[in-house]
């Protein structure tokens, strides 16, 4: 028989979607050739219970020497990297209303030296930019009662442009995109499986309204998770996508030197493992790899972290 309490606690408590935030640090944080931001899916369809929360400190990074072009093909580029140290928090104000904060405490964007393939001479010295990153502030509201067979919630996320949008001598280093965006998303999740192996599935769909002539976006994803080893170990797989409505300005028109190109799209597949060291404290690791895209880096992103999961 399924131990629904365990499944529900895991879903509410941590894994579902929370790693989306880590893989795609904020709704503003993605670079045209770096990462695309994904919405806060935090907790999937399950809000936090009143007075309980989930907190995570993680490191997320991507290093890419190729990207998807506007035709969806892969071309090379100078090696570019982004490393973020992120704080993530969820807290249940009521059994249906959860507050969510994603804050990149430290964000580092760099590109390598450009070296002549003929002479080995350094043509352009690499540069870096270090700052805080763009943050997300969100509110999730449960549309269904706690304990419902299908948990449905809606989340409003505000992308706060706290990072730098034009660093380096060419203005091509960014830890943020300089635009304030608002995203509304709906999640639906179900729990199933057995008490020995609880399972869950969650799907989301969101619309992201972007400012400063950036194109609006549709975001979507599905996720499956399984609890093993008496629910100490949770394995997660997910597929997520972003489709641009391409109703903003062309990248060439937004900023002549901006790395935050517009009209980026991506379809990603990822996996993650979470392990509870104690009842509340755990560690996690995961990756996400692009399956297709446009005007975005073609490289996997990785994350490792430690989390604290308040349990009833």
């Amino acid at each position: 028989m399924v131990n629904w309490n365990n499944v529900a606690w895991f879903l509410r408590g941590s894994k579902t979607g929370r790693t989306l935030v880590e893989f795609y640090p904020s709704a503003c944080m993605v670079l045209a050739f770096l990462v695309l931001t994904f919405p806060l899916l935090a907790g999937g369809g399950w809000p936090q219970p009143k007075g309980y929360g989930y907190f995570k400190l993680s490191e997320w990074w991507i290093v890419a020497d190729q990207h998807y072009t506007d035709a969806g093909r892969i071309d090379p580029n100078i090696t570019n990297g982004l490393f973020n140290t992120n704080l993530y928090a969820e807290y249940g104000f009521t059994d249906r209303l959860t507050g969510i904060l994603f804050f990149p405490l430290f964000s580092r964007n760099y590109f390598n030296n450009e070296v002549s393939g003929t002479t080995g001479e350094v043509i352009k010295v690499g540069e870096d930019l270090n700052s805080i990153g763009d943050a997300n502030l969100g509110f999730k509201y449960g549309l269904t009662k706690p304990g419902s067979a299908v948990a449905i919630s809606t989340t409003l996320t505000l992308g706060l442009p706290l990072g730098e949008s034009a660093g380096g001598t060419e203005g091509n280093l960014q830890t943020g995109d300089g635009e304030f965006n608002q995203m509304l998303q709906v999640d639906a999740g179900v729990s199933f499986g057995s008490s020995e192996t609880p399972l869950y599935a969650n799907a989301f769909f969101g619309a992201n309204n972007r400012t400063n002539d950036f194109s609006d976006e549709l975001r979507y994803g599905i996720e499956f998770g399984a609890g093993l080893a008496n629910q100490k170990l949770w394995l997660i797989g997910r597929v997520q996508g972003i489709t641009s409505l391409k109703n903003g300005k062309e990248p060439s028109e937004v900023s002549s030197a901006s790395i935050f190109s517009n009209n980026a799209e991506i379809l990603n597949a990822g996996a993650e493992v979470n392990y509870y060291l104690t009842k509340m404290l755990g560690i996690s690791a995961g990756f996400a790899a692009p399956l297709s895209g446009e005007i975005i880096f073609a490289a996997p992103a990785y994350t490792v972290g430690v989390f604290y999961d308040m349990k009833k």
């Binding site: 506007d70 990248p251 060439s252 937004v254 030197a257 901006s258 790395i259 935050f260 190109s261």
Partner: peptide, 8 residues
């Protein structure tokens, strides 16, 4: 020319 690139 493609207008999809920033900074051409």
């Amino acid at each position: 020319a493609s207008s999809s690139l920033p900074g051409l």
